[in-house]
Amino acid sequence: MTSDVTVISPPAFGIGTRYARLLPGIVLLLLIGYLGKLTEQSIAAYGRAHQVTLPNIEYVLWAIVFGLIVSNTIGVPSICEAGVETYEFWLKAGIVLLGVRFVLGDVLRLGGLSLVAVVLELAISIVVMTALGRVFKLPPKLTSLLSIGASICGVSAIIAAKGAIDADDEDASYAIAAILALGAVSLFLFPVIGHALGMSDASYGLWVGLAVDNTAEATAAGALYSDAAGKFAVLAKTARNATIGFVVLGYALYWVRRGGAAGVANKAAFLWQKFPKFVLGFLLISGLATAGFFTRAQSTDLANLSRWAFLFTFAGVGLRTNVRALARQGWRPLVVGVAGECVIATVTLAMVLIASRFSS
């Protein structure tokens, strides 16, 4: 979703041809996402008209499913590929706007709480993934990439780390495929487990934010449970994303010591370069909302805009998941990923359940 290129200009979203090239894919994202929203509304309207109780399947799931159908049947047309890749951009814009729904004090309190859980989760993920990588004799750098992907924020963390530890393209694509496959599975599995355990929105959201690796999937898995759970998932995941620089730096220094990567000249600059800047925007909007800068109606408008932005994201999640391409990546990284993620999901679930017992 992102690369570790440090050159700032030219901007990814300029004007003219660069922008025009993105349009077809953005239109496809909108079409698929909107079709998902229409489907949810149509089913609800049908149920009301015929007085039957139909399961309320959120637009989130429809958008992902329609995206999956397109990408795994006719495929994403090449003219749309560049635009479809913008789904992460919409996710970030949506998260910034979602800040309007948080009181800054809550963000700092819950974010701080999440960060404590994140630190534990990071330690567990790195230990589990490293051990599994050794057992299954994966290349050491692939193991590092899987650990980074599982501990922080999936694809962007892997891509950020790839440059920092001089990993092969092949290792990076293996690790990304494993993380994406697991993300797709967790979308369907996590809400079922959450409902089976009768988890509160806050507990479920925190669990998703800690255990689902990719931000888009974490946002979707949270929103599938409830709006409130989606908010908590975004907050926990954002806190987790904020640690990306530290973990990637740690791995970079580890590989420098082993002679497998070029040195890091300026650690502070490195941390700033890897820091997800949209987190700052999220905090700033939350601060403005807390200070009463927006009226209630304006806050609702901004929250709705955030939902529209997420609509593009969820369509993108389906559109860029190609089952055959994932299957081609081989089974060993996937086995390590599945085993590791099961352990991480179980441990983080236990952490969240214990924490909720103490806080209630």
Partner: peptide, 30 residues
Amino acid sequence: MQLSRDWWAVVLAFTAALFVKLGALPHVPW
């Protein structure tokens, strides 16, 4: 790329927020 995309997302979100604040954007339905 990461830097610029992140910043552009922030710029877009704040532009939208400014438009909403100034009343330049009509009510956003969902």
